[in-house]
Each structure stands twice: as structure tokens, then as C-alpha cells.
Design a protein around this nucleic acid. Structure first.
Lengths: 257, 257
DNA sequence: GCTGTACACG
DNA sequence: CGTGTACAGC
């Protein structure tokens, strides 16, 4: 079972690249972020033609998340992060696939720090922690997957000293990430590559990809009950080098039961 | 000597198609319209690399005309239509190439009719007539070439009855076109194809190209002294079917001295 | 830089 | 529909 996440930065602009990558990587489950399309402009036909079913939570201009599945049935269970009915941003969708809870998320960026956007990120994280604690308590096999907009550690950014006051690297958000791990969630890519530099995002500006000036933002966290099934994983960083690519690269794991 | 005109509708957006067509058609002289680029954003390097020299009259957002030459020297003689120093629209450039006067023009569209834009078109035509009469009197070998935004006759539009009040087909502008012919200018494409339907433009909307719902707007008029040299000519209408094509197709003639 | 938005023009 | 413009967000 191959599970992947890809922040596409505009699903319609990214469609050729996305379809090419799907054909090459053949994931069983894919979580997408930053669709940047309203519900009715999700390219369902093309996704279906590529062999995938999909559920999605669209939004005009910004955000938007989707879960794709090749063969296994998708049962949607949440299309918003519980705890704030006034939050209208499409950043969360949760489904059961093959008896696993798949939590696809696009965490707020939170810049500039300090400010209301950073406060919104902290509030979102608080609600997210509540949801993930619940999943742990229910002892469900679950995957937290997507663009966390959190750089977990200094080694996950090419120049940590420049990022001290960036919302992606602020101590407050890294603390929440550590708390998730302390609760038993497993950072699958870091577990597979304990000593390597791993990036999942390279800015469009200043030839960041050519200079490998990257950061690690996209994560796949496994509930304790799934940890033993983790076989392999990686970042398809070559996709970042394709023409008309997203600024993120796809991240994937192989999971056996 | 192959002379061509092509309304590119944005030279930077059209660059791959333009270069492909240049490679395939190998014209000696090319007149371009609707560059839609300021003077400093003309892609001279790419044009040079394709084997062409160029002079151009750019403008931010709108209009813009250029003359390209493969081997023959270009001597610019006008970069505006004389007669109105307050006209700031880049719609005319004139050069001597191989002892011929090449008048590259992008006539105002003139819609909606009636209105100030139509009046501007009529004023532009008045000044154009003065310029062309002068060329006739000087007995110079000259070519009036470009996007005239004039449908000369009913058979030059797929549904003439729908175009009666369109500025491209109004009697006032067709009258001026006829006056040019009466002065001795030769409509080379119509002369070569006296009985055929010939279109040079198909709207992007409503699949106009697929339905062949076209109009003839782009013309190559020869001064009397060049008429006898006219060998052949045509519309490269297949180019209109390429992906990312202009809404106009290139038009060309073969001229021998 | 590369998304998306909205608008003007044809 | 497909150019161009300007702007916001990241």
C-alpha cells in the first residue's frame, strides 16, 4: 500500500504534471493540498481517467484538499477540522480507506509572525491536536498526512538561522509537532532517514531548487498501530525539477499491514 | 522573395508558434502585428537566433508592429503614420528592404460602431490613404501589408448578414479599401484566388476554426509596379490549428522582380 | 516565481 | 477564448 501527499499549488495548472507523476509513481492513496479551485472546478474527469476516485473540499482562489484512491473505497468522515464552525477555509478532509483513517491536511502558513495569521495557525493546531488525540485514544490505525507548514527541526531547513521568526519554524509550532510525536505519532520519513537531509519544498524564487535551498514541510505521521507496517518511503524530488512543477515535491511511504 | 504578414496576438505568448512557423515557411520578410509588448520586451535574441533581423515599434499592453528580414538590410523610414502627432498608438512602421517600401500596418479595429473608436479608424484610414497616394505618385515599388481590420467583400466573411454593423465590415471602411484598389493597389491574395473563399482570421470563441467561421482581414497590397512580379501566395491556415496559436493565420506571397 | 483573482480588449 | 494588465498570497 503506497500512500502519498503532494501540495500541487493549483490543481488545474498542475494537471499535466500531476497525471505524469501518478502514472510514474502509481500510489494507492494520494492526498493533495492547495487545489486553489472551487468545488465545481475540480478536474474529476481527468482524475477518473487516470484511474482514481476522489473526494475533495474545494475553495475559490485558496486552499482546497483532496483524497484520491486507486482501487479502495473512500468513505468520507469529516470535511472540516472540528472545533470552529466559523472557520471557512478548506484545509482538512478525513476519510476511511481500507480501515485506516486518512487525515489530509493543509495547515495555515501563519506568516507574518506575529499577527492574526499566526494566531489562526496556533488555533488550528490546537484543534488539530484535539482531533489527533481522539484518534490515538480510539486506538484507530490513522495517518496524518499533508502540508503541515511546519519545519520540525533545524536540520530540516537549509539555513535555520534565517528562519527563526518565520511562522514555519517558530518554536510554538515546532513544540506542537514534538507533542504529536510524544503522543505516539511517527514521523515516517524521519524514521526512515534518521541522519539524512530531507526537503520537500523549494521556493520558486532565486533558483532555490538548483541551489537545493529547501525545507521539509510535508509530512506523513503514522499512529502507533501502523508504525510496524512502515516499509519504505521517500520524496520524489525529481518532480520538482519538471517544467511547470509545484514548489512542493510529492512524499510517499510504503505500508504493509 | 517571400513576403508574409502575421498578427501574432502577443509576441511573447506566441514565440514558440512563431519560431516554428518561421522554420517551416522560411519567409524573407515578415510583418508582425499585435506585439502587445513594450519596446524593451521584444524578444530580439530569439528572433535573431532564428536568423532574422528586426525593427519594431512596441507599446505596453496593446498594438505593436515589427518588420523581420532574413538576409536583406532593413532601413527604417517611418515609425508612425504621418498626419497626427497626437496619435500614440503603435500601429505603423515603414522600411525600405531590397529597394521596396514595406508598410507594415495594424489598422484600428473600430468597434463598437458607431462611436469614437470607429471615428478613430476613419481618421486613421484618411491619413493612410494620404500616405499610400504619395507612394503611388512617387512611383515607388511598395507593399501595404498587415492586419487591415477590413473585410473587403461579403464573400470574405462566413455570414455577411451578421456583420453589417461591425466596424470591420461597415460600408465606410470597405469604401476606402475599394478606393485603394482603384488607385492601383493590387489585393494579391484576391488576385491569385479570384473565385475562392479565403479567410485569415478565426475567432477563439465558439470553435470558429473548427466550423471554418472565418473572415479575411490580413492583406498584402502591391503597388502597380510590383503587380507583374506576383508569382504565388496563400494563407498558412493550418498554423491556426496549432496549440497556443494566434486567432489570425500567416498570409504570404512570392514576388519576383 | 508561480499560483490564483478581476478587468480591458477584441 | 486568450491575450495583455495589476494585485494578493506564499
Amino acid at each position: 500500500m503506497k500512500i502519498a501527499t503532494y501540495n500541487v499549488n493549483g490543481i488545474n495548472a498542475r494537471l499535466p504534471v500531476l497525471l505524469q507523476w501518478l502514472k510514474e509513481a502509481v500510489p494507492d492513496i494520494v492526498c493533495l493540498q492547495e487545489l486553489k479551485a472551487p468545488q465545481e472546478r475540480f478536474p474529476l474527469k481527468e482524475i477518473n481517467d487516470a484511474g482514481y476516485q476522489a473526494i475533495w473540499n474545494g475553495q475559490k482562489s485558496w486552499n482546497g484538499v483532496a483524497i484520491l484512491s486507486k482501487d479502495l473505497e473512500i468513505t468520507e468522515v469529516q470535511r472540516a477540522l472540528p472545533g470552529n464552525t466559523e472557520d471557512l477555509q478548506s484545509r482538512y478532509i478525513e476519510a476511511i480507506i481500507d480501515e485506516m483513517v486518512i487525515c489530509c491536511l493543509y495547515l495555515p502558513n501563519g506568516n507574518p509572525y506575529p499577527g492574526p495569521k499566526f494566531d489562526y495557525k496556533l488555533d488550528w493546531l490546537k484543534r488539530f491536536k484535539r482531533r489527533t488525540n481522539k484518534l490515538i485514544k480510539m486506538e484507530l490505525p490513522a495517518v496524518l498526512i499533508g502540508d503541515f507548514n511546519i519545519i520540525p527541526e533545524p536540520r530540516d531547513v537549509y539555513k535555520p538561522e534565517r528562519w527563526e521568526n518565520d511562522a514555519l519554524f517558530r518554536t510554538e509550532v515546532r513544540k506542537v509537532y514534538r507533542e504529536l510525536l510524544n503522543k505516539g505519532w511517527v514521523d515516517s520519513i524521519r524514521t526512515l532517514y534518521p541522519d539524512d537531509t530531507v526537503y520537500t519544498f523549494w521556493d520558486y524564487l532565486y533558483k532555490a531548487y538548483d541551489r537545493n535551498a529547501g525545507i521539509r514541510l510535508d509530512h506523513i505521521l503514522l499512529s502507533p498501530y501502523l508504525h510496524s507496517g512502515l516499509q519504505s518511503g521517500g520524496v520524489d524530488s525529481h518532480v520538482r525539477g519538471w517544467t511547470k512543477s509545484s514548489d512542493h515535491a510529492p512524499v510517499w511511504i510504503q505500508l504493509e499491514k
